[in-house]
Amino acid sequence: MPVQCSSCAKNRAVLKRPKTGHSLCKECFFCAFEEEVHRTIVAAELFKPGERVGIAASGGKDSTVLAHVMKVLNERYSYGLELMLLSVDEGITGYRDDSLETVKRNQEQYELPLKIVSYEELYGWTMDAIVKQVGLKNNCTFCGVFRRQALDRGAIMLKVDKICTGHNADDVAETVLMNILRGDIARLRRCTAISTSSEGDEVVPRCKPLKYAYEKEIVLYAYFKKLDYFSTECIYSPNAYRGYARTFLKDLESIRPSAIMDVIHSGENLSVRDGVKMPVQGTCSRCGYISSQALCKACVLLEGLNRGLPKLGIGKHHRLHGKLLSQEPLTEKEEKKLKPPEF
């Protein structure tokens, strides 16, 4: 027997909303989903009229849905925002080149300007080349540091006031769990915050309009809207620990459907003891990017790559910064520790 939409009571329901359990028709689901994002944006005062906003676009489902919903809401509620897409090309064959094709199609579909910044043009290294040198163990460190900076640099080139990213509720809950499993509670507040100003290790403020949207609903939204997105996991991301956290979260959700929200609520309400040191920010003396050290993380990683000592940026090697800055060679003993692993 066909179930009726519990909202309009006219159409046939096509889905059961994971968040509320309500049976809804397609139109009512779109409406409910979009309204929730709108309420999130309004409640957290994420944007001001007249702002230029860069949407971090990877071609994946989250950022595709984000771009779509942002455009819809900007028109429907006259946010007065100037939207544009911002993509990072890490240089990963078979993953990023395909997903960038998707972003280019999105650009046409949504009629938004697009800026692509690539690792190769910014750093002279593609991820493919980096993995060739460092192997698959620490490559995500490189990727993470480079991407954060690349997004900032792209945003500065585009002169945007804000970057919004496609992080969804599942991502945020997962990050809460990951930070606890890693004993990194001090950073938790920043990771769960819906918007961050520029005081951290990023220059351009970021925000997460999809922070309270379930991944399952994002997939449903993209599916029923027939959005064009690219769905393959990064081929270089073997992070076992995150895998554990993700599975745990899924198990929690199967016991109590609100678990994702519950974890986020917890993360938002953990109070961190005073006096947990937050590093003082200065600027990198090589590239001018903000940094708490003489050299920013990206520059140290790069220096390591260029000297053939990839472990330079992985551990804590602040002592060596002086030598790196003055282009001095390292001692044999220092070099030995930082050589790539033998394969």
Binding site: L177, I180, D262, S266, G267, L270
Partner: peptide, 15 residues
């Protein structure tokens, strides 16, 4: 206890 508090939405009480 800490992790189940987090999972149950009891973050504020965990300390």
């Amino acid at each position: 206890k800490l992790l189940s508090n987090i999972s149950l939405g009891r973050g504020s009480q965990t300390a």
